[in-house]
Design a binder for these strands. Structure first.
Lengths: 206, 206
DNA sequence: CAAAAATACTTAACGGTGTTAAGTAAATCA
DNA sequence: TGATTTACTTAACACCGTTAAGTATTTTTG
């Protein structure tokens, strides 16, 4: 059935076209300026056509949030060149912060907005792959640190929660302008790195 | 001028009526379901009337976010009964987390949503009072801990950022359902407390 | 006291949003 | 060739924040 195959391919192409336009729109306007109608305008189809390929707006945002995780992963390409797991933990935190500040809108989608989690709830089969993978990396490094006795022993889940919590807290407070009165605007980033290093250093001491 | 006085009083009353309705609506429907038109319906005035008392929606949300800080303050009433500043730091963190989980929508407004900060930018005279005050409490306790040599010496701003960052990170990831795959739903709260205690304990050790 | 001005409020609209029911033209199948 | 499926659009529903213009009512002023 060569015809129906080509049809499917065309259908997939349009779906990709929608996604490409969505990425472009989201990068340009962020979550606030992101709308189904603008996507439709960009690809020169009617808004309803978008709904033939995506159930609703959240489903597109879910796809975008997964692309965000791919982008974040690319920040950690050189991570496993670092032999010392404690230094690796430092670097992971730094990369996380850097990604969040470089792409605040993607960060927003991945870790702040409810939208992608809403879609996750409806799809029984799929799980939060991007988030899980990232978390697995963190937990792996923490375990390694503990095995080599570079940090105090303890519950890996609790430590992962605390460390992830801290870097997420820093990034999200920073991109939502809550640090203005704590440190000068231009000092935010260096102070965040200091806070991260202070914490990880403190964790290793006994 | 008794007449104009009474007029002003009536005007203030209507403004209060709007605010009361706003609190009710926000408590019932959260940020997502919060709208100018619904407020107008509740007080049985036209939507435009609301604009005679508040410049825009963000201005009302700003007021609500300040009420949120008042509510949060009430969680710390018994805080200064605790003589030991390190225990007080523990308690402050616990209260912060508890408040965030008890009132996720107010927490959202105070620490996550851009809306109140937007209004803050436009009003040159007013500052982020609620946030500043809360931060001052945290910094005071950290300083006291350092003076009494209960925690390692260091930059108070950096430490405040790290500690606030961590508790905010925990609360905001929890209320946005990002912990689902890290710990079981019913374990989230105890694990958060463990993470907090782990960190603060770790900070004090030398 | 009458005219002018200010006050308090509403109607109606603008331009936007997500989403869906119903309709249409073209392609494919029987 | 007629029936059916496919791909897409039009038009609408029910919302949203915000504002220009209009209307009574009250107050101030000449």
């Amino acid at each position: 059935m060569g015809i129906s195959e080509r049809k499917e391919k065309q259908k997939a192409e349009l779906k990709q076209l929608i996604l490409d336009a969505s990425v472009k729109l989201f990068a340009a306007e962020g979550y606030e300026g992101f709308s189904m109608r603008k996507i439709a305008d960009m690809i020169e189809y009617s808004p309803t056509t978008v709904y033939l390929h995506y159930k609703d707006k959240n489903e597109i945002l879910f796809e975008l949030h997964e692309l965000g995780f791919q982008k974040m992963q690319s920040y950690n390409m050189d991570l496993f060149d670092i032999a010392n797991p404690l230094l690796r933990l430092h670097k992971l935190g730094e990369n996380y912060i850097r990604f969040g500040l470089d792409y605040p809108e993607f960060y927003n989608l991945m870790f702040i907005l409810p939208a992608p989690m809403e879609t996750l709830k409806t799809k029984l089969d799929c799980n939060w792959k991007g988030g899980d993978d990232a978390l697995q990396v963190l937990k792996g490094i923490i375990s390694e640190c503990m095995e080599r006795k570079l940090i105090q022993p303890g519950d890996v889940n609790v430590m992962a929660m605390a460390i992830w919590g801290m870097v997420h807290g820093l990034v999200s407070l920073a991109i939502r302008d809550r640090f203005a009165k704590l440190v000068d605007v231009c000092d935010v980033v260096p102070t965040m790195y200091k806070a991260l290093h202070w914490m990880v250093n403190v964790v290793e001491e006994k």
